[in-house]
Amino acid sequence: MKYLVPHSLAEASELLLDTGNSMLLAGGTDLLVEKRAGRISPEAVIDIKRIDNLDRITLQENRLVIGALATITDLLRYKSLPEELEALHDAGKEFGCYEIRNRATIAGNLAHASPGAEFGSTLIALNAEAEIFSIRGIRNLPVENLYIKAGKTVLERGEIIAKIIIPLRNNSASSYFRASRVNGMDMAVINCALQGFYDNNKTGGLNYRVCLGAAASVPVRLPEVEKMLSRIDGTAARSSEVFSGIKSYLLKTLNPRALSLRAAPFTKKVLAGNLIEDACCKVRERLIK
């Protein structure tokens, strides 16, 4: 196996194109696990950690930009995180353990395309885009359109997630909840990210974006649930009616895979409804405080 160290995105992209079976190495927290398990055996590992300025997190006028090498710890320590993006902080705190957070990158978490990835559902709920670099050109893609199936994204050979761009939205709040088997380091049994937002004039009711992780082979948005949530008007009776409607809808419609080691399909379906309820209440609390 070759170990290659490019110093620019262009060089990295070229190496990807030139080397048949090659993989990018950033934090390595997925790559090394997969390699050790014998599930991958790349001819070359392309270590992008020496590329300058890729680890920045910057707050621009209408957006937060996260560089490809920014780690979970970088995110958790980032002092100017806008309040409405608190779901990112929620997700970071649940992610792995301290040691893993110091290595793992947010972009890597997306690129690995694990169905239960903390930042898959979170970035979809936040309507984020990935800026994808290749020597053939740069394209922007909503994170929602990134996934094909577990472990597989639409990225083509030579393409690298260079940045993640999260739009800021006035009058919005977000949250991330997950269910796990133990409190310490664990994978999500199922996770839920949720954004609540008013339209620009704050005239209508609250709207939602909801995304579940580990409920299917890719993170899934739930437009039907979003619609149902928007019927919440702040009264307790209405809320409980909406949530029980959502729970029965999920029991009927979700179809998690039967052989998950983490939970039975029924467990995931029940948890999905309960997490959405918790995440929605948290968002309303954050928005209305």
Binding site: R181, V182, N183, G184, M185, D186, M187, L261, R262
Partner: peptide, 9 residues
């Protein structure tokens, strides 16, 4: 996937 308790548990 064989989860043993951590200090948080």
């Amino acid at each position: 996937d064989y989860k043993i308790p951590t200090p948080e548990d």
